[in-house]
Simulated assay, not measured.
Amino acid sequence: MEKVSGESSAKVCEYLTFRLDREEYGIDILKVQEIRGYEPPTRIANAPSFIKGVVNLRGTIVPIVDMRLKFNCANAVYDAFTVVIILNLHQRIVGIVVDSVSDVMGLVPDQMRGAPDIDSIIDSDAIIGLGSLDDRMLILLDIEKLMSGLDMSLVAVT
């Protein structure tokens, strides 16, 4: 527990923050296994375009999802900042390609707001809400729900 405003305590949730195009997103830090530099994966025939392929990670075959393509970002450029976040979701290892990783941010409930009710590419069930800290606004994702969506089917939710 961490003190907030000097007198009351609240549960701090930690999120790994990353960028896709001009937006900043956050995912539960407990779902993150590791962060790696981008290496082109082995392409799988007939896979959706946002599934870039697979990599061999210490003997485990890991599907790689390019979140920029999944979220219809204007341009997916692979450069020195491009990273793969390796996630451990329901005993399934999945990698997601993002533009860059920012930091780990702790948010208390007062800093989180519900997701706006708008149509978007992201399944609304996969958006936990919006987090704000100073002048930063994060889109908080439930990465397990996102990876278990009908178009992804990468994680079986039990």
Rank of each mutant, 00 (worst) to 15 (best):
Y38F: 11
C73I: 12
E23K: 14
I121S: 08
F81D: 15
D66H: 01
P48Y: 09
S8H: 13
Q111I: 01
L87K: 06
S100Y: 07
C13K: 13
Q91G: 07
G6T: 08
R36G: 00
D110F: 09
S5W: 04
D79I: 05
G26T: 08
T60Y: 00
N46V: 08
M137I: 15
M105H: 10
S120R: 05
E39F: 11
L107H: 05
F50H: 04
V84S: 00
P116D: 12
I29P: 07
P109G: 06
L20A: 02
L20T: 04
V32I: 03
A115D: 04
L89S: 09
I93V: 14
V4F: 14
I128L: 14
I44K: 05
I35W: 05
S148R: 07
G149F: 00
P109Q: 10
S49A: 14
V94T: 10
A126Y: 12
S132D: 09
V83I: 02
L16D: 01
G95N: 02
V98F: 01
D142P: 01
E24G: 04
G114V: 12
S120A: 08
T42W: 00
R113A: 11
K3R: 10
S148I: 05
S148C: 11
N46Y: 10
G149P: 03
S120P: 13
R92M: 04
Q33L: 11
A115C: 06
D142M: 11
L130N: 06
A47V: 00
D151V: 01
P40Y: 08
M105E: 15
I44D: 07
V83K: 15
L89V: 12
F81N: 14
A156G: 04
T60R: 15
A126D: 08
A74F: 09
P116S: 02
M147V: 06
I27N: 08
R22G: 03
S9L: 15
Y15T: 06
V84F: 02
S120W: 02
K145Y: 08
T82L: 10
S49M: 08
G59C: 07
M147L: 08
D134W: 06
G95M: 08
A126T: 05
I86P: 02
L150Q: 15
N75Y: 03
L150P: 12
G149R: 14
D66Y: 02
A80Y: 08
A45Y: 13
S100V: 00
F81E: 13
